[in-house]
Amino acid sequence: MPVIQSTYKPRFYLKNGFISTVYSGLFRRVKAVHQKRERLTLSDGDFIDLDWSLSNNNSNKLIILLHGLEGHAQRPYITGAAKLFNDNGIDAVGVNFRGCSGELNLKYRSYHSGSTDDLMDVIQHIIFTTQYSEIYLKGISLGANIILKYLGEGNRIPEQIKAAIAVSVPCDLEGAAKEMLSLKNILYHERFKKYLVERLKSKQAQFSDFLSVEDIKSIKTIIDFDDVYTSKAHGFKDANDYYRKSSSLQFLQNIEKPTLIINALNDSFLSPECYPVKDAKTNPNLYLEMPNHGGHVGFIDKKNVYYNERRALEFIQDVLK
């Protein structure tokens, strides 16, 4: 499909990518979302927690929401989408990746940008235990890459999956990782690294035979983190091997479900390869929208409903007409 012309026009003081990103990450609040937690045992015996919010109308429609790096299902970009969909008669479930729901997971492994196996467990669980006939997927950043990879890497996609939305997605992981090391992203980088290292210290206390204190001290960048932990804990040779095999960019041509990608042109986290114009023009199931503004998950709009949330609802309504 041709690239979609975006209609997102924020107020002048929100056009700056840094301001929109920081405000959305640190200051946005979403109220009146009532979540109920369910613990799901995964195929390997580990667990993740699912946070459900229902529309109170016995809906047969559900949206599965995946968060970004070091996020969780109470982040405003998850609860904001859940509230909008609930208000429009669609149930929502926010997935907390392993170790992201306030309790350390049981295994040495945790989650990463290409861990589609956990998403498959979640979808299988929902299909086997509920009556939803229409299921949609929406991911933010890391969660968006997981969704795109899941849809295009050759899995059998259940017929209940009708559409997907990927927001601020680093579909070329190596390029995005290098962007994070640039001077313009130093504040973001240091914040992410701090949280990743702190979590890894708890993991090291659990699994001292796998990871040493010296290993953690050697981490100076997020690429180091992926070299020391992410790659080794999840079966990759090193960070570059992890980036190469987990990037969703290589799988976009195989996507057969209607899928919308929304990547802002002023998203400082994304490399040029993260704007897959060629794939969108040659795959009739892939829609690419590139607003001039929005930063990284910073699509601030009216009445605390973000543009990417409204567009996700519109896209689902349009493709199912």
Rank of each mutant, 00 (worst) to 15 (best):
M1W: 03
M1G: 04
V3N: 08
K9T: 04
K15L: 01
N16E: 12
N16V: 00
I19F: 12
G25H: 08
R28S: 11
R28W: 03
R28Q: 14
A32F: 13
H34S: 12
R37H: 08
G45I: 00
F47S: 11
L50R: 10
L50S: 13
W52E: 07
N60T: 07
I63T: 09
L66K: 08
G71V: 02
H72K: 15
A73Q: 10
A82T: 00
K83V: 01
D91H: 08
G94Y: 04
S101K: 08
E103F: 00
K107W: 01
Y108P: 01
S115D: 11
S115Y: 14
V122P: 07
H125C: 06
G143K: 02
A144M: 04
N145V: 01
I147K: 15
Y150Q: 05
L151V: 04
R156P: 00
E159L: 11
A163Q: 05
I165E: 09
I165A: 09
A166C: 09
V169R: 03
P170E: 11
C171E: 11
L173F: 09
E174D: 12
A176L: 05
K178I: 04
L181H: 13
S182Q: 15
N185T: 05
L187G: 01
Y188E: 06
E190I: 01
K193P: 05
K194H: 15
Y195N: 15
E214I: 01
E214C: 00
E214Q: 13
D215S: 06
I216D: 09
I222Y: 15
F225L: 06
V228D: 11
T230N: 08
K232M: 11
H234L: 02
K237N: 10
D241N: 13
S248G: 11
Q250A: 12
Q253T: 03
I255V: 08
E256R: 15
I262K: 01
I262L: 02
I262Y: 02
L265N: 13
D267I: 09
F269R: 05
S271T: 04
E273W: 02
Y275L: 03
N283K: 11
Y287Q: 08
M290Y: 13
G295P: 07
G295R: 14
V297Y: 07
K303Q: 11
V305E: 12
R311F: 01
L313W: 06
D318S: 13
D318G: 00
L320D: 08
L320V: 02
K321V: 00
